[in-house]
Design a protein around this nucleic acid. Structure first.
Lengths: 339, 339
DNA sequence: ATGAAAGCGCTAACAC
DNA sequence: GTGTTAGCGCTTTCAT
């Protein structure tokens, strides 16, 4: 339970022969201290291996130097073994590494709305919410409590909110369609997920707009994110029954891998009869046979922007968002045709 | 910066017409309050949506309700995009989910020894350290500060330390060897990693002891964890040059996948000429052609034990460790021979 | 059974 | 330039 505390600011003050205020000022670079005292105090503190208690400091400053990370879409996977969804684990890694570089700690908060509220949840300096859902309760909570936050991808329910960053989906989706067309596709199917997040909503809108402008008849299928590969496989059969298209674009690598299995089972050759691509890369796209063309998301670039946005919000600066980062479409065998 | 705080215990006290002490007692179930007051205060607190400030509470109790998670071997990968090392990401997920169930938050702490020390690092209630290295500086820091911790796998430098849990490596390694033998293997090679952790040290010892008892000549190869697939591929060539064995057991799925590539390049058929298996499962083992036999680690079971051990340590109870959990060897095409 | 008050370790006014 | 002191919000004796 209660652990014995270590060295306090008083110990350092006593040893350095100054007041606690002097120590505080010396270590924080605040106030008006003589350079000599400042240096001496710092030396003593260093020597004693003194570390200011984060709780006491946080209580005074109302700022703990830690942010929360809510893995929205990870929760929705139901289980915590997100096989193949390495997109999100890469975001976790990128964010924690970058946050540490800035002297921020990262706290994993699966769901701060769940009672009882996790202890530190409401004391964190800010939050990064991954892929907020429509009417996301976490966002509502943060908003209600006045806690700063930034989101990965826009909040579909709040068009005015600008503290978000994401890969420029409209651009790279367009690139995929053009790639399909350039390889002779006349009909393209979109397979999206069911979570009510920007990713699903916006890409369908992009697709429909694109169909509109090219005169193509839109065909949109849905499969729940958590259904993973088997969901994709099931949909593949439906797609074949409805009429084999020239190309299929799936949201996740898992779905694409499942679709590939389904198509193959029905004797539909990929890429010869139908081309296939995924809008997010994963082990599945890389290791399928044939390997599946996919959009490579650059997590590090996006999370860097998210941290910038969040820190600006915490500092009370005006929003510089939204930020759109670039992603690269990597063509693999599943959509490579040799005319 | 400093965020305006929410409702405090004083607000609740005022509204309920009692003292702050009464509120504290009512909400914590401590002291000697009349049932009536207790209930009334709780109702008021509930109604006001009051949440005790974790920082102030932590300052008094010297306990914040949060634990740290140090991904030792993940750091050693150098970059934070652990492709194929889904073992660790699964541990992250399992631990954070289980910790939340117990009302604990999980803080990701890449390296608490790195200066400047991350703010809350020294204020956390305890730590779970994944795969500590020999003379691990993180363990040394925790030890020095008197912070409770439990480790995934034993600390190779501290035989007396018992607060650890791991999959029962000796048992399942034996099972793999027996499987190889049963399928006609006369010579078996072990490919391990280079990190000085229990995983590498103990499995080599198990292997050598097993060779000793069966009269087989031990052949141990090493490849740095961070070298991943290409490391395995390189080693495969060396192994072939040294003489093709009947079976190869690799530590990681990435290494095994690389070895498979290397063997195939040299015309060594798997599993016909040489069988292959990995001691930890990953996307690589599942998606390679042929799929690679692998030991499936049950992260959830092990992390549950780790949390129990840690909480016992935090509560000052005697250690109930070490805990050995079971793992299952899943035979796939890479070691399945049809006689 | 309840309230008043003393701190937990720190920062920031405010004196000197 | 430096020290004294009043809290941050909470828990916990100790009176009453």
């Amino acid at each position: 339970m209660a652990r014995s505390k270590g060295i306090t600011i008083r110990d350092v003050a006593k040893r350095a022969g100054v007041s606690v205020a002097a120590v505080s000022m010396a270590l924080n670079g605040t106030g008006t201290l003589s350079a000599a005292t400042r240096l001496r105090v710092r030396a003593v503190a260093e020597e004693m291996d003194y570390q200011a208690d984060a709780l006491a400091r946080g209580l005074r400053r109302s700022s703990v130097g830690a942010i929360g990370l809510v893995m929205r879409s990870l929760d929705s996977l139901g289980e915590y073994a997100p096989r193949g969804v390495d997109v999100f684990t890469r975001y976790i890694g990128a964010i924690s590494a970058q946050a540490m570089d800035r002297g921020l700690s990262v706290m994993l908060v699966p769901d701060p709305t769940k009672r009882p509220t996790p202890p530190l949840a409401l004391s964190l300096d800010g939050y990064i919410v991954m892929m907020p859902h429509l009417d996301d309760p976490v966002v509502a909570l943060l908003e209600r409590r006045g806690i700063p936050y930034a989101t990965l991808a826009r909040d579909p329910g709040r068009p005015d909110f600008t503290d978000w960053a994401t890969e420029d989906e409209a651009t790279y989706f367009g690139r995929v369609y053009e790639h399909f067309i350039a390889n002779g596709a006349r009909s393209i199917v979109l397979l999206r997920g069911t979570d009510p997040n920007a990713w699903n909503i916006d890409s369908e809108a992009t697709y429909r707009a694109w169909c509109e402008s090219t005169g193509m008849t839109p065909r949109v299928y849905k499969s729940a994110e958590r259904a993973g590969e088997s969901g994709g496989e099931t949909v593949a059969h439906t797609i074949v029954d409805d009429g084999i298209p020239d190309a299929i674009l799936c949201h996740t690598g898992r779905q694409a891998a499942g679709v590939l299995v389904g198509l193959t089972a029905r004797g539909v050759a990929v890429p010869d009869r139908t081309m296939l691509a995924a809008a997010s890369d994963s082990e599945h796209t890389r290791h399928s046979r044939p390997a599946i063309s996919a959009v490579e998301l650059h997590a590090a670039e996006t999370t860097l922007a998210l941290l910038d946005l969040l820190q600006a919000r915490i500092a009370g600066e005006p929003s510089a968002g939204p930020v759109l980062t670039t992603a690269r479409f990597r063509v693999r065998a599943s959509s490579r045709r040799t005319h």
